[in-house]
Amino acid sequence: MGIMNRLLILILLFTCTGTAAQQVRLDISHVVGNMPMQLKVTEYHNAAGDTFTITVFRYYLSNFTLSDATGKAVNAEKAYFLVSEDSTRSKQLLLKNCPAGKYTRLSFMIGVDSVLNFSGPQSGALDPMYGMFWTWNSGYIMAKLEGFSPSSRLPNHMIQFHIGGYRAPHVTQRLVTLELPTPVTVSARHTPQVSLEADAATWFDGLHKISFRQTAGFMAPGTIADRIADNYQHMFTVKEVIHRR
């Protein structure tokens, strides 16, 4: 092995440890009520009593913040994540460059900042090729749930909820704040792991009950989108905080 190779490996090692430092890993699992989410096959029931299946469950997360017991908040590195039930990798989020500290609260946004909705095409998770950008009425689809329900009067009994809208009065970004059951300690040596659960049943329950007989789909900015966003603002819970030694 030549000196150059060794040097390269060393550089690689240093670069890796450099960026790997001070991260928090989030593992997200999806459930519907008290059942694990299984696309296409499992039948669920909403609060209105409709039976339904889910074929697509996808949403953006961004603007991650950690706060300590005194209320002081720090930001993780700016990043946008497209979480999708059909992709295991998309459910493992790495929050990079978190300042060292002991944190008791995690906050983030469901959706994409307003300014990026009118700034032309973006790259990475925000690439319009992922089908999360409306072409007829520019703006991101912040969250998407599709499936089927016998109660739906749409063609083929489909249910289709594409939730978006960034301009007042129909704004669908929602801030989520979660208290951590045990504090998360961020340091260069440990990457703590937080397990989150997102419950898709909340979309149709909570402040505003949605019955598929009445509303089987909504795919534009508007009041129903706002209501579903109000509902899914509460879809996350913290299951566990793990510190690996």
């Binding site: 700034s119 032309g120 095409p121 950008f133 072409t135 007829w136 520019s138």
Partner: peptide
């Protein structure tokens, strides 16, 4: 577009390309 639905020149071609 005729209804002003697309908000940036850079994103406009997305509409005819995918329609």
């Amino acid at each position: 577009m005729w209804d002003g639905g697309v908000n940036h020149l850079d994103i406009q071609p997305l509409t005819p390309i995918t329609d």
